[in-house]
Design a protein around this nucleic acid. Sequence first.
DNA 1: TAGATTGTTAATCGATTAACAATC
DNA 2: TAGATTGTTAATCGATTAACAATC
Lengths: 218, 218
Amino acid sequence: MPKFKVSYAPSVRRLPSYLLLAKQALDHGDEYISGTLIAMELNLEPIQVRKDLSITGIAGKPKRGYPVVPLIGAIESYLNWDKRVDAVVVGAGNLGSALSGFPGFKQHGLYIVAGFDADPSKFGGLIHDSPVYPIDQVAERVAVLGVTVAILTVPSAYAQDVATTLVASGIKAIWNFTNIKLKVPDDVIVQNEDLSSGYAMLSMKRRIRSAMMSEDAD
Amino acid sequence: MPKFKVSYAPSVRRLPSYLLLAKQALDHGDEYISGTLIAMELNLEPIQVRKDLSITGIAGKPKRGYPVVPLIGAIESYLNWDKRVDAVVVGAGNLGSALSGFPGFKQHGLYIVAGFDADPSKFGGLIHDSPVYPIDQVAERVAVLGVTVAILTVPSAYAQDVATTLVASGIKAIWNFTNIKLKVPDDVIVQNEDLSSGYAMLSMKRRIRSAMMSEDAD
DNA sequence: TAGATTGTTAATCGATTAACAATC
DNA sequence: TAGATTGTTAATCGATTAACAATC
């Protein structure tokens, strides 16, 4: 049951980088930005950029490119980033704090309205403007706040238990930064952010470069 | 120039989760773990798990599965995780600290031996056992330490400048947690970890669920 | 106008999945 | 032995890329 399977997932993953470039073009005062330019900037093929952008419904102009303001609007609307979404961070450690303070999120409509932690020394403190509550207050606070999105940054040993509590509290989407494969009901979304996968890729690239370099030595 | 293109990238990204399950099986005292079980645990197809594992060269036994100890060895060896790699963290903020403390890294052979920051109040401090130095000492320290891998967690405004310095200092691989597309020489590896991509995926999944739910209402 | 760029349709490529023989 | 699981070969699926007409 690969529930909520995203169509064009690779394209969706690239859209944020196009959005960033469009915003930079806007700041720069440009009226248009071409797919060719975006591709060059991101080391992609122009055709890929055009294909990706087509899913947002934006229409470009031959010879000019895509109109910057409508392009930003089209991407934000397609990703639902033009509507505010409230979230809580569960696990107010370094990772939770880092995510809370990430300026990009608010720009994308994601507001972190509270944090939770098991460590009493953190209660009453703040993670980037948001109060930190004891983790056993999750259920009541989530209910009061009416939040349905949670960012999970607890130690992996607690991940499943906390996730279960979150679901029981009404959370419908979990952005999971632990390496635990969470078991949740079918109607709850989980987006896994697996650092180990990224490190595996880095490791393989290093391996490939080593192989290429010893080849060159021939 | 998509340099250092990883073959079987999707498989490589899944290997760490197989490794984790294999280690859990080992702790549990199991001698074998089947692809069928791994697939169930991770919501994958058994055939996909078998295909993925085949790239590591591990040989399974019909009716039993894969021998746990050799399986762990095969994955670790394939990913080069059986050899120690030293790295520095540049940007000793919350994200840098979180990554330094991530227990999984040391298990995968990644040792963070130093941190760097622009904030004088952090100099002489520690991020999880490793000393924090002024960022303008990067060049000399990296040279002395002989490190070739850097984890980049500075604010995006400084990302390119810092990356340029890192490259000049002898860094050959950058694990980039900023949303800036770094410009580096051809022989330098960059692995981008883009949080916005993950959030785009979460947003789309929420969008799809909404669509499905309003459909159900018909 | 000339030419750069878009957008569509088709071809290629690579990843996933299916089928099934081999085997312990 | 019977049957679950592996591993290989082929088929399908989806993403990327190529080709090129349309257009500003």
